[in-house]
Nucleic acid binder design. Structure first.
Length: 576
RNA sequence: CGGGGCGUAGCGCAGUCCGGUAGCGCACACGGUUCGGGACCGUGGAGUCGGAGGUUCAAAUCCUCUCGCCCCGACCA
């Protein structure tokens, strides 16, 4: 391909609206243009990358026996009404009416549609198992599109769906997908983790996400390098380290009473309400405090208790206690008779859900008395509670499985796998007859990959100050040929010969035949990030060599023009 | 949906507080000199100042409304 004929509108300056590195680089190096918030045009370079990614996905999906189909992007409302999602899903679904006034929507995902197909076509246990997939556009009216192509309102997704006779079958399909996904992401040159995730509104029992670590990621994952525990913080368990009493000038230890048993002591803490304020005032570490949060649940008010140095995990608590909201100021006063800054778990009969980190230790909490905190609180002694892990895992916590220290990383979700069970097959009546002629509901799984996110993650993980550095497997071209002087007959003859030879060898080469100065060509080549460059200049040619340069390492190998094709092929083999 | 920021030439920005003929750099076109890491000189074209309404002799600038884009949070099937 000739650079002069190929549309690569590189930018010298960084566009103002871009923040994420992948976004900045994709704009600057002429890969994408933004049409509107969350809507992007993929220019030729980006589209080549997408096609390479999709090709890898197809190969690996086909290899586990999946079959590609294509479903409509426009759906009738009726089918979404049958599964209840027409009303469960809010503004995120694009809705419209056809000319006959029928409700329609743009597909955000295709569980309903594929299950409809299964319900019509799958009759017998002999028709199972099945895996069907497509690579197709989805529409979601995102509350906040962001980070370039990482979160958009229209995007391409590989989505596959498995249909099995029973749970064992589903487990098999699930593992097939997990294995295929590992191969896909590895082949795309990504660093990634498979982590436990929240099945959420998809319903069903188990779910995992595939996460590419990157500061641009929207998710945080918890990782244990000792036992391999890996989970999204939306559900990750962890064990906070013991409370820090040492060094405290005012430890939460209660004064001794006659019986030798620790009693409670109220200490004045005027106008000190937050953990930070009281901790500062009393010179005691935040882990010596109990944070008491008054919440209003479906069955009335209750207290959520977490240690002062940890945050309440609302999602975890919702799973335990159902929907809730924070109590308003006047409600706190009415229910506990005291301002929010001074409430504590003792002296009241409210239902309490406490974080497991509070099981050990002695604490300071609000005294349920204006301007006072109470010292010497022993959970289990001075108050009773239901115990659960309801804190957000954070750096410094220990692994809940093996006790080793965990670490947290930001990550981009590039794929997910869900065990759906019968959430869709039951309402849509995807039923088969088993060997005994008995009706059974098909067991389903759903599995997604975001090709654009693979591309963005690849850039986030592979770039330097000069631009992108594509993994060989998904690079838009294998190599860029850079003849430095178009006016020099020998340079051009050498460049054209190499270009032709590479093309004959099915190496995809981009030749920068523009009448630009060398500096411009070098800068653009580094920006667009093709993994290898062949630089052909007057000086080298005089001594009989061209330069084969690695974009990543910037290492340059002097090579005879006649050898360069061979060398390139060697490198490609090593890379894959 | 809550909080913040920004809309001026294709791109990056100044000018807005304090109203008075719309500017700079890059890019673009032409001529010349250059040619191994975003060259230099000269000439030139290009702007409904996001939009609507208002105040004023006069509005990019002040007021009201509105649209769009970005960032943080909420949400994320």
């Amino acid at each position: 391909m000739l650079f002069s004929k190929f549309f690569i509108p590189t930018l010298r300056e960084t566009p103002a609206e871009a923040e994420a590195i992948s976004h900045v680089l994709m704009l600057r190096s002429g890969y994408v243009r933004q049409l509107a918030s969350g809507l992007y045009i993929y220019l030729p370079l980006a589209w080549r990358v997408m096609n390479k990614i999709n090709k890898i996905i197809r190969e690996e999906m086909d290899a586990v026996g999946a079959q590609e189909i294509s479903m409509p992007g426009l759906h009738p409302a009726e089918i979404w009404q049958k599964t209840g999602r027409w009303s469960d899903i809010g503004d995120e679904m694009f809705r419209l009416k056809d000319r006959g006034g029928r409700d329609m929507c743009l597909g955000m995902t295709h569980e309903e549609i594929i299950t409809w197909l299964a319900s019509v076509e799958i009759r017998s246990y002999r028709d199972l198992p099945r895996i069907w997939y497509q690579i197709q556009t989805k529409f979601r009216d995102e509350a906040r599109p962001k980070s370039g192509i990482l979160r958009t309102r229209e995007f391409i997704m590989k989505d596959s769906y498995s249909f099995d006779r029973d749970e064992d079958g589903l487990e098999g399909s699930y593992q097939k997908h997990a294995a295929a996904y590992h191969r896909i992401f590895a082949r795309c040159g990504l660093k990634f983790y498979q982590v436990q995730s929240d099945p959420g509104m998809m319903g069903g029992a188990a779910a995992h996400e595939f996460m590419a670590p990157s500061p641009a990621g929207e998710d945080t994952i918890v990782l244990c390098s000792k036992c391999g525990y890996a989970a999204n913080t939306e559900l990750a368990l962890s064990v906070p380290p013991p409370q820090k009493i040492t060094g405290a000038e005012n430890p939460p230890i209660p004064p001794l009473t006659k019986g030798g048993e620790g009693g409670l002591e109220d200490i004045p803490t005027p106008d000190k309400r937050t953990v930070a304020e009281v901790s500062n005032f009393l010179k005691a570490h935040p882990s010596c405090f109990i944070k008491s949060l008054l919440l209003i649940g479906e069955d009335g008010p209750f207290l959520a208790l977490v240690r002062g140095d940890r945050e309440l995990h609302e999602k975890k608590l919702t799973k335990i206690a159902g929907e809730f909201r924070a109590a308003r100021k006047d409600e706190v006063k009415e229910i506990l008779g005291v301002e929010a800054g001074f409430i504590g778990p003792h002296n009241n009969k409210l239902k309490k859900i406490a974080d497991v980190s509070l099981k050990e230790g002695i604490y300071i909490t609000g005294a349920n008395r204006e301007g006072f905190h109470t010292k010497g609180i022993k959970p289990g002694v001075h108050f009773e509670a239901e115990w659960h892990d309801i804190h957000i895992a954070q750096e410094g916590d220990k692994c809940s499985v093996c006790g080793a220290e965990i670490r947290l990383e930001k990550a981009i979700e590039i794929g997910n796998i869900f065990k759906l069970g019968t959430k869709y097959s039951r309402p849509l009546k995807a039923i088969y007859l088993d060997e005994n002629g008995k009706d059974r509901t098909v067991i389903m799984g759903s599995y997604g990959i975001g090709p654009a996110r693979i591309a963005a993650a690849a850039i986030e993980q592979n770039h330097d100050k000069d631009g992108m550095i594509w993994p060989q497997s998904i690079a838009p071209f294998d190599i860029e040929i850079i003849p430095l002087d178009l006016g020099d007959g020998e340079i051009m003859k050498t460049a054209e010969t190499i270009y032709k030879d590479l093309t004959n060898e099915r190496v995809e080469a981009l030749m920068d035949d523009r009448p630009e100065r060398p500096g411009v060509k070098f800068k653009d080549a580094d920006l667009i990030g093709i993994p290898y460059q062949i630089i052909i200049g007057k000086k080298g040619l005089k001594e009989g060599f061209v330069e084969l340069k690695s974009r990543r390492t910037k290492e340059t190998q002097r090579t005879a023009p006649s050898d360069v094709v061979k060398r390139v092929k060697e490198r490609r083999l090593n890379a894959s």
